[in-house]
Every structure is written in C-alpha cells, then in structure tokens.
Design a protein around this nucleic acid. Structure first.
Length: 679
RNA sequence: GGCGGCGUAGCUCAGUUGGUUAGAGCAGCGGAAUCAUAAUCCGCGUGUCAGGGGUUCGAGUCCCUUCGCCGCUACCA
C-alpha cells in the first residue's frame, strides 16, 4: 500500500492591507481542497499560512487611519481569519510575519546568507520626503515625464509615452504622501548577489520536478539567460518591518521576511503541538508544497529557493502556480460590482457553492479561470442539488423506519464501479486537476439517478409486500450518494457532515468509499444544499458595486483619500490663468478605434456649425467607440495641436481617473449645446 | 518588438505517449415520469478541432507559418 507521507502545504501570505476577495479565494480554496484530500488519504499534512504585514504600504495605510501599524495589522488579521473560516478554509496555523518567531528566523537566514558571502553594500540615491520623513518608493512619487513631458506620471515609467527612467529624473516631482517636493538623499542599501546561485537555480528550476513546464519555460526565457540583478534587500528607516540586527537603522525589505513567514508560522504550530520545526523544514522525507498565484512566481522560484538553499533548509518539493480570476470574462472590477469581498459573498451565498464551482474550473495549469455567474448558478443547481443531493432526498424517507439493508444488495455493479473510479479521482486530486476529479464524480451521479428511476421506489413503497425490495433499492441509492459525498468531501466538507448526520457515520477517510454501509439506521432527511436564486447572486453584485461607489459618492466621510494622495493638488493659479484654458462643450460625431493603438480612440468632435476637431483620446480601454457617438463631452479647445503616432490631435477631451479602464469622461447636464464655453 | 500561453459544438470546457465514424456538462427541441429542493429519466449534435503548409500508412494531438485573443516585458532577454 501507499506509505504515509509527511506534507507541509502553504498558501501565499495575503497582504495585511485589505480584505480578502473572491480572487484571493481561488488560491486558498484550491489549497484547502488539496490539504483536506491529503488528510483523508491518511497522510500527515499541515496547512500553514500567515498575514504578510510589513512594508511601506501598510505603514502609509496605518498613518492614514491614525493608528499604529500593530493596531492596523491586528485588525486585518482578525478580519482575514473570519473571512477564511467563513469559507471553511482550515489552516493548521494562521500566523503573522510580525512575530518573534519570524524575527528569529529572519536573523538565522540573514546570518547564513552573510556568511555565504552573498551580501554587499551599495549607496543609492533615492527621493526623500522631508515632511513625511520617509524615503519614497517609485509608486509614491509623481511628476512630469522627462521624455514626453506628460504630467502626473508615476516614479519609474510613463503611461503616456511608455518611457522608463529613474524617479530622480522626473521633472517637478511630488511626493504622493505630503504633496511636497522630495529631495534626493543618498542611502546605503544591502543587496543579495543572487547571481552567485545562478547554476543552482538553473538546475533547480529546469529539473522538471518542481515547477509546471510553462513556468520553467518562462523563467528560462526571462531570467535565466542573463546574470541575475542584485536584490535590494534593505530599506532605511522609517520602515515598518524588522530592523536588521547588525545594521541599525536598516530594515529587511518586506519580500525578504514574507516567505520566511512560512517557516515562522510552522514554528508556531510546532510549539503548540510539541513538534520540532526541523522535522518539517530540514527533513528530506518531508514534502513542501507552495501554492501561489502567477504574479509572485519570481520570488518563489528564484529568491526563495536561493534563500532556503543558502540557509540549509529543504527546498520546495513543488511550487503550484495558478492564474487569476476573471468574472464573466473580464477582470474583476469595482465599478461592475465583480470585485466581491469574501464577507459580502457570505452575506448572500453559501461558501460551498464557490468551493464547488472553483473546483470544477481548476486544473494544474497556470490558466486564468473565469467565474461565469450564469454557469455558477446552473452548475450548483444542476450538479449538486439536481444530481447529488437528489439521490439522498428521493430515497432516504422510504427507509427511515427500516434503515439500510443488512447486506449490500445487487446493484448491477454500480457501487463496485464507483469504488474503482476512486483511484482515478484520487490521482486527479493529487495532481491538482480538480476539474477532472469533479467530472468523474459527476459521471457517477449521472449513473446513479437512472438506477433510482428504473427501480421506482415510489411504487414499491405503495406495496407492503415489497418492503424488502424497497429497502434494497434505497440502500443502493444512499450508498451511491455516500460514496459521492466522500469523494466530494475535500471540496464540500459540509456535505460530508450532512452525510454523517443522515447515515450516522463520520466521513474521515477516503477508504470509506470502497465499502458500502449496511444495517445502520437512517435519520430523517433534511435539506442539504439550497438551490441558488439568481437574484441572490445579483444582490451580491449590487452590494459589491454599492460598496465601491460609497467610496466615491457624496458621502464625504467614507471617501478614501487615495485619489487625492495619488495626485496632489497643483500650485495655486489666478482666475486669469484659468481663463487661458478655453473649455467647450462638444458633441462626438464619430469615434473610431485604431487597431494598432492600445489606448487611443480617434474622435471627431463638433463644436457646433462647421467647426470640427479631430482628437485622440486615451480612453480605448474604458469606452466602446459606438457608445460615444452622439454624446456631449468637454474639450480643451485652445490646446496647441499635438502630433501623435496616428495623426494630429487638435484638442483634448476632459476625463478623470487613473487611466486604462478607469477613465471617466465628463459631460454637461442636459441643455448644454456644442460650442458653449465652460466658465 | 521580445517571451510565454491560448484559439475544439450557442456557452464552459475534456480530449491521456499521434490510431477506428471528435466527446461531456449547460442551454435548446421532442417525449416520459411525478419519489424528490419544478429536482429526475429517455431521445435529438455533419463542429472546414482558427487559416495554410509539412512529417506520417494515419494528426485536434508533432513541426513550420499566418491570423486572432490573453498575460508578462520592453528600442536588453
């Protein structure tokens, strides 16, 4: 038989800067299913996670709320834990990177990395905000692009011309924190020379064992072909994180201490359970599996193995990488209401629905998965309610008096066939190909319902002489149901419990699927899974949209300061300065998409009469050209024409928003006519 | 532009190391049943497997190429 494995499983540490949403849940559910499966198989398996709590972003968020960082992250910690438990995600330990265990382990890693000669010091020039008293990461600086002179561009690159540069080169830079002009300061940073581990990482990533093939290819194409850049691992004070013991005033960069949090959280668990952390992290017999999203591939497949290797820990057995979630084919969006928080979902729907739906979509590939809301409803109603639960619901009440038959009846080989399928289903779970596992399980349900149909228990029940036959038929139906519930237990733990409540036997082990249950009582059937009403899904979407709107509505107290912070107020001007800008109402009379352009639409505007302007606007991602024709917009009519790649733009259409799909055109209230000036 | 991925029935997707008339679920149409949460059962699918070329006795499956979509990254990979 298969021997007992020792398996350590982690999911990525969620950043303690906001609530969990349905996109995050893809990973935690995927991982939870895998862990529950391994536990049912009798393996020794623990599921480790923690909040990722350090870094500038959290420091800033805490400041904005006027609380200490510790208060801020502990609030989020509680929120995250309740979100996860609401979805039946069962961590063995959910820690925090802001823990004494993590500090101790970071020190241990650090000492080993220094001893290996991988650390070097270098002075770098960086922008400093004297008012906020902090160095500024690129995303906290805006200014005018040194290449194309576009205004309010972020630190390291320009979305207008695509140019890249250093934040120090920005013309007229501003700190997004205080709005003041940053000064250039020199600071000493510590770097890890990852290049020294290049040969090792070539071998480890390309061995074919630890990574999905497309990931190995990606690394080969992007990073392995040239020397690795040094990794800037320290941040000068002030920084919310751990101060580096032998470098006072310097802190480990959040991405240094975050993965070590996996080990630290394991250590916490070990302390609680009288175990030794080395038995998990320095034991070749222990498998280590990381589940992550594709966005953090780089850290987990290059830096992290390098760190583990250098510090003498075991390397991951496998890094399982998944894609992103889209909703109805599009990126999750706050304005569309598809950016659904875990807590909002739970107000409207059962967690099992989402667990099951994700399971039907997940494979071992890195592909994005789509949450199609119509399909979501029909899958739950058709598969779970119509096929699976229906087996119990249509047979249990006939045998409440007698219970199950004492010997398992002849069933035409259905149970034996489904038992045999158990191996294939198990190997699909093992390989993270849940969609295949579910397909196989549903095929069993598709085989079971016709059995009930052919044997007509509802007719047998009317004839007292056929009581034994009735009991047999229901014994088969309930056993087929139980078998399916066992196979689905990693995905639907609540269904397994309901199965126990009905048949009196706890579902704990995969092997239970191989032997039918006989001679035991049957309890009254209770509803197990309610059908989904589409309106409930819609209500969830509506509430999510409302949540998002609240932050931009007239409810001043709940408006976030993010937008203003991202683009601080400009210098004061006089009324005369303003009068120089001639804003006019204009009607869009033609709008065409330029195939080669990623952002631009070509608009033809009418200012009334024969006055027309051709204007290129960077709104392609946000508006369909057809939808614009006929509407009124506000245009800067006296802006100097500008030659662009696809023609000359004779003006500018006024819009707000950060860019891409988040662009909002301004339009006048009803009654305005083209040509009117805006005063 | 580079790299990676994808492109199979109206929708969501399976198609194992190339091998008989390419599959499932949902939706749709027709019928049956009425035990069950209007759940279930039976029947109904001629899709240039994105286009073209090649390798092969044989390709959705391998190679080349074109087109389209997605992601990452950019006058470096």
């Amino acid at each position: 038989m298969n021997k007992t494995r020792q398996i350590l499983v982690t999911a990525a540490l969620p950043y303690a800067n906001g609530p969990i949403h349905i996109g995050h849940l893809v990973e935690y559910i995927q991982t939870d299913i895998w862990v529950r499966f391994q536990k049912m198989r009798g393996h020794r398996c623990i599921y480790i996670c923690a909040d990722d709590t350090h870094g500038t972003a959290i420091m800033i968020s805490a400041r904005q709320q006027g609380v200490t960082e510790e208060e801020f992250i502990s609030h989020i910690h509680r929120e995250h834990q309740s979100d996860f438990s609401g979805f039946d995600i069962e961590f063995d330990n959910y820690g925090s990177t802001h823990s004494e265990e993590n500090f101790a382990l970071c020190s241990e890693f650090w000492t080993a990395i220094e001893k290996a000669g991988l650390v070097k010091e270098q002075d770098i020039e960086q922008l400093y905000d004297p008012e906020a008293k902090t160095f500024l990461a690129d995303r906290f600086v805006t200014g005018t692009c040194p290449k194309c002179k576009s205004e309010s561009q972020y630190g390291d690159n320009c979305d207008k011309c695509g140019g890249t540069y250093s934040a120090r080169d920005l013309v007229n830079p501003r700190s997004t924190l205080s709005g003041t002009k940053p000064e250039i300061r020199t600071a000493r940073h510590l770097f890890i020379e990852l290049e020294q581990l290049h040969t090792f990482l070539d071998e480890w990533t390309q061995s074919g064992e630890h990574l999905q093939p497309e990931i190995a290819n990606y690394l080969r194409g992007h990073f392995l072909g040239e020397p690795f850049r040094d990794w800037d691992i320290s941040r000068p004070a002030p920084y919310f994180g751990f101060e580096i013991p032998d470098n006072p005033g310097h802190y480990w960069y959040v991405w240094f201490d975050a993965p070590i949090g996996y080990v630290a959280s394991t250590l916490q668990w070990c302390k609680l359970h009288g175990e030794n952390v080395d038995d998990w992290w320095r034991n070749k017999a222990c498998e280590i599996h990381h589940f992550i999203g594709k966005d953090i591939t780089y850290f987990h497949t290059l830096f992290w193995p390098g760190m583990l290797k250098t510090a003498g820990f075991c390397l991951p057995t496998k890094v399982h990488i998944h894609g992103f979630l889209t909703v109805d084919g599009e990126k999750m969006s706050k304005s569309r209401g598809t950016f659904v928080r875990a807590a909002t979902y739970l107000k409207h729907l059962e967690p099992g629905y989402l667990r099951y739906y994700y399971a039907t979509k997940l494979s071992a590939k890195v592909d994005d998965i789509d949450l199609n809301l119509d399909e979501f409803v029909s899958k739950i109603n058709a598969d779970l309610v119509g096929k699976v639960v229906n087996l119990a619901s249509r047979s249990a009440k006939f045998v409440q008096q007698q219970g199950l038959s004492d010997t398992y009846p002849e069933d035409g080989g259905l149970f034996a066939h489904a038992a045999k399928e158990g191996d294939l289903i198990a190997s699909a779970y093992e390989l993270c190909d849940y969609s295949q596992a579910i397909r196989r399980i549903m095929a069993l349900a598709d085989g079971a319902n016709p059995y009930v149909e052919q044997n007509r228990p509802w007719e047998l029940s009317k004839d007292p002489s056929k009581l034994g036959q009735l009991q047999d038929v229901c014994t088969v139906a309930l056993n087929l149901f139980r078998q399916i519930a066992i196979y689905l237990a990693p995905v639907l733990p609540r269904l397994a419990i309901q199965c126990e409540q009905l048949l009196g036997e706890p579902v704990t082990d995969w092997k239970q699927s191989q032997t039918p249950l006989t001679g035991s009582p049957v309890n009254p059937f209770k509803h197990m899974i309610h059908r989904i009403d589409k309106p409930k899904v819609q209500a969830m979407i509506d509430e999510s949209r409302d949540d998002a709107l609240e932050t931009t509505s007239d409810n001043v107290s709940s408006d976030s300061g993010d937008a203003l912070a991202a683009e601080p107020l400009a210098e004061e001007i006089t009324i005369d300065d303003f009068a120089k800008v001639d804003l006019r109402v204009a009607r869009v009379i033609a709008a065409e998409s330029i195939p080669e352009a990623r952002k631009l639409l070509k608009l033809t505007l009418s200012l009334g009469g024969a006055q027309q302007r051709t204007v290129f606007a960077g709104i392609k991602a946000a508006y369909q050209p057809e939808a614009l024709v006929g509407r009124l917009v506000i245009c800067v009519a006296n802006l100097a024409p500008r030659k662009m790649k696809f023609g000359t733009s004779e003006g500018m259409v006024i819009a707000s928003g950060p860019g891409n799909s988040e662009v909002f055109l301004l339009s006048p209230d009803e009654g305005a006519v083209p040509g009117q000036r805006v005063h």
